[in-house]
Design a protein around this nucleic acid. Structure first.
Lengths: 233, 233
DNA sequence: ATAATAGTGTCTCTCAGACACTATACC
DNA sequence: GGTATAGTGTCTGAGAGACACTATTAT
């Protein structure tokens, strides 16, 4: 039997775009214009085109729907339950994208239907790699997302927490130069727990992934912190 | 524009079935009967059917192509480069399956074209989460796999090594009852390094994930070890 | 000076691993 | 006895974290 005789689903990419804003995770959403789920919040996404790789499709969706280019993206998980789209069989290859706040902010105005939600992460009670509670809010109110996008966001948060253990996640979520306080806040939001500043400082410096710039933050009402950058790999 | 007007690729699942055998990882392969890559080694796989979830498709492939049921499976990564199949656009959702050796062995005879390869893992020189070298061998000789299946196997090994850090992987790769030596060998093969038996024993017992059965191995030429089992979650 | 945060020093506890030692099976 | 592996005891060093302390800025 030939490859041509088989069921052919539609394949999309959906992208969870995260940033750190005001002590929570910012999430890029748009309001759907069409059925199904017209008027509800959804992740930016789009169909994978002929001859287009999955990474290219994710990059195109970011560019077209969020005005973002040169963003760090990685594939997350593929959601393929047959009933996840009520119209038709649609398999979605979900991606995770991380951006720093300035670029996240400038991305929003490019499309009027794009807004920013907030993801509140509540760490599971028990061990460190336990389950996470995730709730998405828009202007304070908790909302449900279209399709299975809430499950996709939860998967993204879990992945992000996992990456934090062994990769310098802040590199994607902060501007080029940042204080150790900034970086600590990133970790605190993702892990949903307070970190002791002196210990955090030491462990980050010991990892040799940061280097000091010699420059200091300005316009703060206290002793200014030195700016650091991530050491090139 | 409607969902019905879009490019529709074929979607398959491919499964990396691993076990531990003779100090290496055993891998389930079959020899392709059809073009492209006829006569070459490939992972078991098949098209996702209409109305079938991805997990169901992976389970069906394991059942039909390897005679395996009730196997631990998790989704791995989705490979979607437009040229990965020379005939047509085929997106593959790769899965990782782990089986204990007795079931792996009984699975093979169900289909004459199924054979077992070996995956040699060579740990990257530097840190613990570094790159891994993977070579697939059949009867001693290194082979290349069809399509991008070598890349899929490498992704599977990397995932398996990552899981070892925080999950009791041996549960899937060993029979119900096993000695601590058996479990240590599993870890040694996956990590490609020798582990000190006393320390390994202590850390595994301290994790509270094992419990002793009171029974001991038999027919060994030395002091028999107590059999342990994984504590139910 | 006070407030606020940067940054240092130091102690403790846990855990990974090296390694010496004892225990128990078969030959 | 010898050999092989099971299993225990003990030490050391690295890293996480608590917490006291000093340093430097603005007001």
């Amino acid at each position: 039997m030939s490859v041509h005789e088989h069921h052919r689903p539609s394949v999309t990419v959906d992208v969870v775009v995260l940033t750190i804003v005001d002590g929570v995770l910012g999430l890029l959403l748009h309001r759907r214009q069409e059925e199904p789920f017209a008027g509800e919040w959804a992740l930016p996404g789009g169909f994978v085109l002929e001859g287009e790789s999955l990474e290219a499709a994710a990059a195109r969706v970011l560019r077209e729907k969020a005005g973002l280019a040169q963003v760090w993206v990685e594939q997350l998980y593929t959601f393929g339950n047959p009933d996840r789209d009520p119209r038709d069989r649609v398999i979605s290859v979900a991606h995770l994208a991380l951006v720093d706040l300035p670029r996240f902010r400038t991305s929003v105005p490019t499309s009027t239907e794009v807004v920013t939600g907030a993801v509140e992460v509540r760490a599971g009670a028990r061990g460190t790699h336990d389950d996470v509670e995730v709730s998405v809010r828009v202007q304070g109110g908790p909302i449900a997302l279209a399709f299975d996008h809430s499950a996709i966001v939860k998967t993204a948060i879990t992945r992000l927490r996992g990456k934090l253990d062994y990769t310098p996640v802040g590199y994607q979520l902060l501007p080029d130069e940042f204080t150790l306080r900034d970086l600590r806040r990133v970790h605190e939001v993702i892990q949903d727990r307070a970190l002791t500043a002196p210990n955090f400082r030491r462990s980050m410096l010991a990892s040799r992934e940061l280097e000091p710039t010699g420059r200091f933050e300005e316009d703060v009402e206290h002793r200014p912190a030195e700016l650091h950058r991530f050491r090139p790999r």
